[in-house]
Design a protein around this nucleic acid. Structure first.
Lengths: 128, 128
DNA sequence: CTATCATTTAGACAACCGTCGAACCACCAG
DNA sequence: CTGGTGGTTCGACGGTTGTCTAAATGATAG
């Protein structure tokens, strides 16, 4: 792996729909939509991965080295690496090796799908 | 149970923070925040529960009877009941028995927490 | 009170998930 | 080429999760 992203749902119609405006309380999700989104949500439904994602996203420069992340947890390196792989496989983060260190960054598009799922219910006035 | 909600995080400070504006890429989540949100996300990170939630939310009148939900799945009644309990325990839906049938509705506040988590990253122009 | 329908609870089982130690690969310094 | 450091992959172990069948609870009708 040298600059990979592994997009889980390359460019499906469902992805398009949900990316823009799939309110969870506007119309029932189809079986396929639900399955795709569940995969995405499973990747995020873990305390460690949630913190990793926020640490990467809030890191200066938009990137974070693994060495910066590992110290914040009482976990071994293989475990951190496993969680990063889950996030990467879900297409939520990208990675690149530069010299000795490996850097990670957030892929906003996929993260936006998650937000678009729940927010329309919260702020109906803003959206329409 | 007759009109319960079982709020998982009654009124913690973390809940307040994240309910309003906890951007996943603005500042690192604390260990406690991440743990709470992970519980919430786990409840939603399942295709069946995702569909249940959207079916309840989009149902006319804002309420749905279990009898309306069961037919949409190839699952037994106990399994559906189990998933509904998970959502209820997470504080995402409320329930009430009226006569023979049990009705479920969405609790917007908790759902909003999930949206607030991911959207700030998606629309940086709007938020600031 | 009994019968019947709707829903939940209890118990069991296979599959999945998070974690670890050990081994392995990539890069850099002598 | 050899050694050392940063990260990942592999294989295994215990705990959790989704599903089922069987049984219990609650409500209505006769």
């Amino acid at each position: 792996m040298t600059a990979t992203t592994l997009p889980l749902f390359p460019n499906s119609k469902d992805a398009q729909d949900t990316a823009c405006c799939a309110p969870i309380a506007r119309q029932p999700l189809s079986e396929g939509e639900a399955a795709e989104l569940a995969v995405l949500l499973k990747a995020v439904a873990d305390p460690v991965r949630l913190r990793l994602l926020s640490m990467i996203g809030s890191h200066a420069g938009g990137e974070a080295c693994v060495c910066d992340l590992t110290d914040a947890f009482d976990l071994t390196a293989p475990t951190i690496s496993h969680h990063l792989k889950v996030l990467r496989t879900a297409g939520l983060i990208g990675s690149q090796r530069r010299g000795t260190w490996v850097y990670y960054w957030i892929i906003p598009g996929q993260v936006a799908r998650l937000g678009a799922l729940f927010t329309p219910l919260a702020i109906p006035a803003v959206t329409g």
